[in-house]
Nucleic acid binder design. Structure first.
Length: 423
RNA sequence: GGAGAGAUGGCUGAGUGGUCGAAAGCACCUUCCUGCUAAGAAGACGUCUGAGCUAAAACUUGGACCUAGGGUUCAAAUCCCUAUCUCUCCGCCA
């Protein structure tokens, strides 16, 4: 959520940012006029409340002295009715304002290239050699089936389309990747490991920015008010929701493995084969809560942390700076990491690292203070995949496949795979 | 799932209709004092929000907030209803 004060003092900044994003139609003028009316109404209502409070005290005093209070009581009753009427009127306006405020995406940072679609994203750097093969390469789902690593058919029987089941060395490889990533981020990069609930409530999802706008992307649990989390970002950014931290508490670095659940509404026909787009996948997530002045430096560091995983897995990748039109709702600035898939002859997204500035902390009333007397400040939140495990596994199968059908295990992962060099 | 008890400021904890944004203690902060692994004195000390003033703060002033949402009343932390959460006992269970 943006600061409504920004809308009052500099509405053009909001308009410009919305234009850069292309996909959002918000009536800013309408919002501003609603805000003016609501404040007007509040001032009037506050004055009435003052009058009621004063009169009530007077009644108490008069009653003590045995005076008749009938007429003043009637008067206060009338004030009370007006207050109630004003409150109802204000509630309607406020609901409208909040509704609109919740649907305005974060401000686009000045360092983000302006563009319409993914074609306008900027390649920042590349790492690793794109491999060449002297045999016909197989897709990861072909390998998965042939080697018994992935049981697609029976997963469909158990759950449905877009579910997968890992088996044998495939299951172990997924577990190995999770452990490897968590160990790397906790021991080398300074993150605290967290194992959060895989289910969140409405408040948590609203603060993160998934609700109310993107409810159709979530799996809701029908007999409750719970949702399956689409990413560990949701619980991690909410750990301190509603709390006021001290400066010395920051920065916070969290990493968590969770399963992630996405309805993939609107993805019909896209990536229907393999592990690329499924309803449930494993991910190791990175989240930071930092002071505003550091947040863009922290974003660069987070991208490096995610890159390190790909480097140790010996997977060629590139880093993209997303353009304004391709960037997510919460984000002020986003880098995507894309890993090389030889059978598709292109790079595919495997991590997305974003600085959400104060957008989420404002929604979740997460604040901190420099000292006990200072004003409260909204910290900045960042999130990044470190990495999407299923996609990393798919990339390993494809990039490290051998002529004899085996898969070479990258050195960094071997100790997690029973010291095997090949599976 | 059944029965009961509870939810007050950073923490502990008073407060059963009016003078309560809320006693007291602890913690934090400032100042002073004594002195040395700490003690004492005084003051300040919540969040959100409207208006005024301001370059911006500070400040002044009003309102709201005692888990949340409704209700009763001239007036609610206090009475009523609902929800959520916590604790105890029973049941069930990895």
């Amino acid at each position: 959520m943006l600061d409504i004060k920004l809308l009052r003092t500099n509405p053009d900044a909001v308009r410009t940012s919305l234009e850069k994003r292309h996909h959002y139609k918000i009536n800013v003028d309408d919002l501003i006029s609603s805000d003016v009316s609501v404040r007007d109404l509040q001032t009037k209502t506050d004055e009435l409340r003052k009058k009621r409070n004063d009169s009530s005290q007077l009644i108490a005093k008069m009653k003590k002295e045995g005076q008749d209070t009938n007429s003043i009581q009637a008067e206060v009753k009338e004030i009370g009715e007006t207050i109630k009427k004003n409150e109802a009127e204000a509630a309607v306006l406020e609901a409208k304002i909040i509704d609109t405020m919740y649907s305005i995406p974060n401000l686009v940072h000045e360092s983000v290239p302006v563009g319409k679609s993914e074609e306008d994203n900027q390649e920042v750097r590349k790492w690793g050699e794109v491999p060449s093969f002297d045999f016909e390469v197989k897709t990861h789902d072909e390998i998965g089936k042939e080697r018994g690593f992935i049981d697609f058919e029976r997963a469909v029987k158990l759950a449905g389309a877009r579910f997968t089941m890992m088996r044998g060395s495939g299951a172990r490889l997924e577990r190995a990747l999770i452990n490897f990533m968590l160990d790397l981020h906790t021991t080398e990069h300074g993150y605290e490991e967290v194992l959060p609930p895989f289910i969140s409530n409405r408040e948590t999802l609203t603060a993160n920015g998934n609700l109310p706008k993107f409810e159709e992307d979530l799996f809701a649990i029908s007999n409750s008010n719970y949702f399956l989390i689409p990413t560990a970002e949701v619980p991690l950014t909410n750990i301190y929701r509603g709390e006021i931290l001290e400066k010395t508490d920051l920065p916070k670095y969290f990493t968590a493995y969770t399963a992630c659940f996405r309805s993939e509404a609107g993805a019909a026909g896209k990536d229907t084969k393999g592990l690329i787009r499924v309803h449930q996948f494993s991910k190791v997530e990175l989240v930071k809560i930092v002071e505003p002045e550091n947040s863009f430096d922290e974003l660069e560091k987070m991208v490096k942390n995610a890159e390190k995983v790909l480097q140790l897995l010996e997977l060629p990748y590139r880093v993209l700076l997303l353009c304004s039109g391709d960037q997510g709702f919460n984000s002020a600035k986003t880098y995507d990491l894309e890993v090389w898939f030889p059978t598709q002859n292109k790079y595919r997204e495997i991590s997305s690292c974003s600085n959400c500035t104060d957008f989420q902390s404002r929604r979740g009333a997460l604040r901190y203070k420099l000292d006990p007397k200072s004003n409260t400040i909204f910290p900045h939140t960042l999130n990044g995949s470190g990495l999407a495990v299923g996609r990393a596994l798919a990339a390993i199968l494809e990039v490290h496949q051998q002529k004899d059908g085996t898969i070479k295990i990258p050195k960094a992962l071997q100790s997690y795979m029973g010291n095997k060099e090949f599976i």
